[in-house]
Nucleic acid binder design. Structure first.
Lengths: 247, 247
DNA sequence: CGAACTTTTGACAAGCATCAACACGTGTGG
DNA sequence: CCACACGTGTTGATGCTTGTCAAAAGTTCG
């Protein structure tokens, strides 16, 4: 059911940054049968606790993963951008331990877990590539634990903004320090372990300090050095290879 | 350089809970050449930022991974027990994004990354098994983000105690609700994003409520139901298959 | 037996949450 | 096309959870 216009190429490109693949591996990956799903903002792809037998890749738009806490609070555990694989954990174990939801409207490539597993079993190099991509995910999780656990509000938000800047730059979605940030302040709070009100005040503070500016749905980094200093941001954990300074 | 008395069997057993392996896969894993390293409590195995070309497995004792924040604070991102693979991310990427340190004295099996990678490339099923184990790790990270981000002190600590109870039970280190907990209150604080002082007060509170009791280096769960309620603990994220009630 | 670490306690401060209200923009249905 | 509901951003007042600082008591180990 591969779409005509769209392909898994952006996902493959990302994988190939870290692993050398043969032409056959490439072909095998690009030939993975997938269903394209166009979703509106807020659409829920997977719900925590439900069975999950598919894995997806983001073709356009933003998605995020989150968990619901007993008291009703919500924690966003990752933000996924174009080219990111999504939900590999859920798919391989068969049960979702977190929900997956669209942050903006966009489209996903949905791949049945069985198909993915078959190809992975046949092509060790491909399996390694996807494995590494999940390890990067894991590394980002580790950084988020530290972010939420040991940084104050200014630092948490700055760190999140830095991470998104670098990741979006890697997929060409950053232009002269500006990028789309389709997160509401409530979502930023859910990602950083803060309340929307406090996020609001902290962002105002960052604006007043001249570190960033932002309108409705985008952010401009006015002073990258200051932002990374405040956030204690070191991009090593993203394992993107050589990450140059923000241009 | 395989030790005579000890082997990677506990690690393999853990892997085999989730994946079917052939005899050849088993043999290949058990024949992985490793160096046994006996370390004292507090010994540092890997330091954040250093090159890392080995991966380890815990043969005895407790280890932990942690990150250092710009302001000097520390965040523990995982606690590793017998049979856990350690540092796979560091090894595969070649640079450590977190430190690894012994929590108690104990011994590790240290495997060169190159060897591991070779065997993984040759044996897709084994690669898949190790991959899944890193995905479980990742799932635990996700839960920790939520723990630190959205739960209060009582819940955070209770959740940590629940997780350790379940994981230690899985490797036979829990006896009638009691298990070794070789963490200082400062380390518990570093794992939960709290200060040692507040950890102290919160644990006293849990003791007074009759939920747990603890002496120097061990914890006894007096009321499992209450502890899981307070912590909002659901073991699904550990992907241990059927996890029965605490016995 | 003393040094170093860990647990415990108290007083106080601060960061962030909570609650409540209002402003603003957007889309929708009457 | 306007009215209105709704989501989001903003502001203020207030309070609680947790952090900070400091010191004493208990513990471990050479």
């Amino acid at each position: 059911m591969s779409a005509i216009a769209e392909s898994l190429q952006p996902v493959l490109s990302k994988l190939e940054k870290r692993v050398n693949l043969s032409d056959e591996d490439r072909r095998a990956f690009l030939n993975l049968p997938f269903t394209r799903k166009d979703l509106g903002a807020g659409a829920c792809l997977t719900r925590e606790g439900d069975p999950a037998r598919t894995c997806s890749a983001v073709l356009s738009g933003f998605a995020y993963r989150h968990k619901t806490i007993a008291n009703g609070a919500r924690q966003i555990i990752s933000v996924q951008v174009v080219g990111d694989l999504l939900d590999v954990e859920n798919a391989l174990f068969g049960t979702a331990t977190h929900s997956v939801q669209m942050m903006t409207s966009g489209s996903l490539a949905v791949i049945p877990a069985a198909v993915l597993e078959k190809v992975m079993a046949e092509r060790p190099a491909l399996q390694r590539a996807v494995w590494l991509s999940t390890l990067v995910d894991s590394s980002v999780f580790g950084e988020w634990i530290a972010n939420v656990g040991r940084r104050d509000a200014r630092a948490r938000i700055s760190h999140l903004l830095c991470e998104l800047a670098v990741r979006l730059k890697a997929v060409g979605l950053l232009r002269s320090g500006t990028y789309d940030l389709p997160m509401t302040q409530e979502q930023i709070g859910d990602a950083t372990g803060l309340t929307a009100v406090h996020v609001n005040r902290t962002i105002q503070d960052l604006r007043r300090s001249g570190v960033i500016s932002n309108d409705k749905r985008s952010v401009t980094v006015q002073n990258w050095r200051a932002l990374t200093d405040i956030g204690g941001f070191d991009p090593a954990y993203l394992h993107e290879g050589t990450v140059a300074a923000l241009s």
